[in-house]
Design a protein around this nucleic acid. Structure first.
Length: 605
DNA sequence: GCCGTTTTCGGCCCGACTGTTTTCAGTCG
């Protein structure tokens, strides 16, 4: 279930949107936006805080604290309700279209009475926008394109949303009497980047109590279908969830079947047929005798087919069957292998938490090392200066080794801190600082944050040039896509991958569920070039550090092993990688043989 | 509506791009 913090954050974000749409004070709207973000990222549950405690959250003052209390007590906030009454919900929905903000949405509503995306499409086709001031043919085109993008993501929800709900349902149903086993299956178990509906599988002799408990969950809006083996519901947020109950001795076959993917299942069933067997959700059967051979665990099912157990993240028929038959499945990287996070922010730029809170939270995850990478000055809205960055470095050095001195890290002297930066890759591939300043950082992430519409050649040259910078270690969120919101930039990724491999630059797998960038398919492609990867949370709040799991799952979907991922490496090996070709920059031309030796070790290490 | 090394008022992230204009408004990151 969503935390109260998330509900309150969503409410304030809506309030901010409504203020903007109704032409209210833009500064006030921004304050609510900021408060929404701060509350969403706040570690303590706001429903447990009083007004005074709430005001300790940065950006929350008296008025907002009162509204939080009002929401916790009554389930609504009258100020928000008043604005809701003025503007149909569909008008706010219009602002989800890229290129269409609050001003244009209000114009469309007031001038044309447009209050939904469908009505907007009709209005465009009827050429009714042509007479509006500020709307030209190009705007029409952009709006239609934006609607297409939005709709393509509409029926699917993001990974973290689906995962939160699924884990909650599994926890609830596991408590029901007679429930022998319970797990989520489907695309969620394969950890695809978006999820269409959630499949929950349970094993029990009697399905009745489970079906009842399922339909009585508090967030069930509608029971779509209810039977003895399968019940389907829709949640208040519009997400469809199927529950299937199978006999305990069919658990393995059912889990295998409902995990999919469809393509993977077709291949496994083919394998069965070739061996005179039949595979279904009830088990693996001998065709001639009709006798069931195995079904209780997935391992048994795969073993009987001549396969090792195949991790769900690989089950896409992308070669896992062949690799399994040859016993050459990769030893996939796991979350426990991750020794540190190499891309994180603090409140020095756009993060929410102070440095020390982030460091403490990272140490709590058991990391051996941790990098702080706030934005450089080229993202001018972040107001970074040399002085501020150097002052942060002092703080980082002071905290180096100070956390993580208990538990398993104790004897190794605490968590090591790396002072880094997230540089901005400018339109020409240049970054925020000259070499001599960059040399002071332990590592540099470099990412594209603007000029997304450059042509393919320019964009490729831009990113490749960043790779060639001897101080750039990681290309952050390499395609800059936002799932369902913004397409990937147009670049020749093969050229980028080759440049990364050649220069010793890692590609990020940004674990934020909005991004998951690189995606699994790009990872598979990049790996062939011998590229290294960094799985990073890009955390802007302590809670975001936990996004790591989605990044690791995406890495698994890209068939990565521990060795492919630089932040699973011991610190010394990582630091050698981060040194890149810097020595070359320091002594131009000198010590060439030593450096090529080093480069060689990197590419094969 | 929040906040304070410009503290109880008066600022508030700011520069750039895009499409529409003919000097600028809206949107974005």
């Amino acid at each position: 279930m969503a935390r109260s913090n998330d509900e309150v954050a969503a409410l304030f974000q809506e309030y901010a949107d409504l203020i903007s749409i109704t032409g209210g004070d833009a500064f006030k709207a921004r304050v609510y936006e900021k408060a929404a973000r701060a509350i969403g990222g706040h570690p303590a549950d706001v429903s447990t805080l009083d007004a005074k405690g709430l005001q300790q959250i940065p950006g929350v003052g008296k008025s907002i604290a009162e509204k939080v209390v009002e929401y916790v007590n009554s389930g609504s906030v009258s100020a928000v309700e008043q604005l809701r009454a003025k503007i149909p919900a569909g008008v706010r929905r219009l602002t989800a279209i890229p290129m269409l903000g609050p001003k244009k949405a209000l114009t469309l509503y007031e001038e044309l009475g447009v209050s939904s995306i469908d009505e907007l499409v009709d209005a465009i086709h009827a050429e009714r926008l042509r007479d509006l001031k500020g709307f030209g043919p190009k705007t029409e085109e952009n709006i239609l394109h934006g609607i297409g993008l939005l709709r393509s993501a509409e029926d699917r929800v993001q990974l973290d949303v689906a995962m939160g709900l699924a884990e909650d349902i599994v926890a609830e149903l596991s408590r029901v009497n007679g429930c022998r086993r319970c797990a989520y299956a489907g695309s969620l178990r394969r950890v695809r980047e978006t999820v269409g509906d959630i499949d929950i599988l349970t094993a029990a002799e009697d399905s009745g109590p489970l079906m009842r408990a399922f339909t009585e969950l508090p967030y069930v809006m509608e029971v779509i279908a209810q039977g003895r083996t399968k019940t389907s519901i829709r949640t208040t947020k519009g997400l469809a969830v199927d529950l299937r109950v199978v006999p305990p001795d069919s658990w393995g076959a059912a889990l295998q079947y409902f995990t999919g993917s469809k393509a993977h299942n077709i291949r496994t069933r083919e394998l069965a047929v070739h061996q005179g067997l039949k595979l279904s959700e009830y088990g693996l059967f001998d065709v001639e005798s009709g006798e069931k051979t195995v079904s209780e665990t997935e391992e048994e099912v795969y073993a009987r087919l001549g396969l090792p157990w195949i991790p769900p993240t690989l089950r896409e028929d992308r070669g896992e069957i062949e690799a399994g038959l040859r016993d050459e499945l990769p030893d996939l990287v796991e979350e426990a292998d991750i020794r540190g996070d190499l891309h994180t922010h603090t409140d020095l730029t756009d993060g929410l938490a102070p440095l020390e809170d982030m460091v403490a939270a990272a140490a709590g995850r058991g990391y051996a090392y941790y990098a702080i990478t706030d934005h450089g000055p080229d993202l001018s809205m972040q107001r970074m200066t040399d002085e501020r960055m150097l002052a942060q470095r002092e703080d980082v050095r002071r905290l180096d080794g100070a956390y993580g001195t208990r538990g398993k890290r104790a004897k190794r002297g605490g968590m090591r801190l790396l002072h880094g930066v997230e540089l901005n890759i400018g339109p020409e591939g240049d970054v925020d600082w000259p070499d001599d300043f960059l040399a002071g950082f332990d590592l540099c992430v470099a990412s594209v944050h603007s000029h997304f519409n450059q042509g393919r050649e320019e964009m490729t040259r831009r990113i490749v040039r960043a790779c060639e910078n001897p101080y750039v270690n990681i290309i952050g969120h390499p395609t800059t896509r936002l799932i369902g919101k913004r397409p990937a930039v147009d670049a020749d990724l093969d050229a980028v991958f080759a440049a990364c491999a050649r220069t010793g630059t890692a590609l990020e797998i940004n674990a934020h569920p909005d991004r998951l960038d690189l995606s699994d398919e790009h990872i598979l492609r990049a790996k062939r070039y011998g590229v290294r990867f960094a799985v990073d949370s890009d955390a802007h709040a302590a809670l975001h550090l936990a996004y790591m799991r989605y990044g690791v799952a995406t890495a698994q979907r890209g068939w990565l092993t521990k060795d492919d991922v630089i932040n699973t490496w011991p610190e010394a090996r990582l630091r050698r990688f981060l040194d890149k070709g810097r020595a070359k920059g320091r002594n131009k031309g000198r010590a060439r043989s030593r450096d090529t030796g080093r480069a060689k070790r990197h590419s094969t290490a």
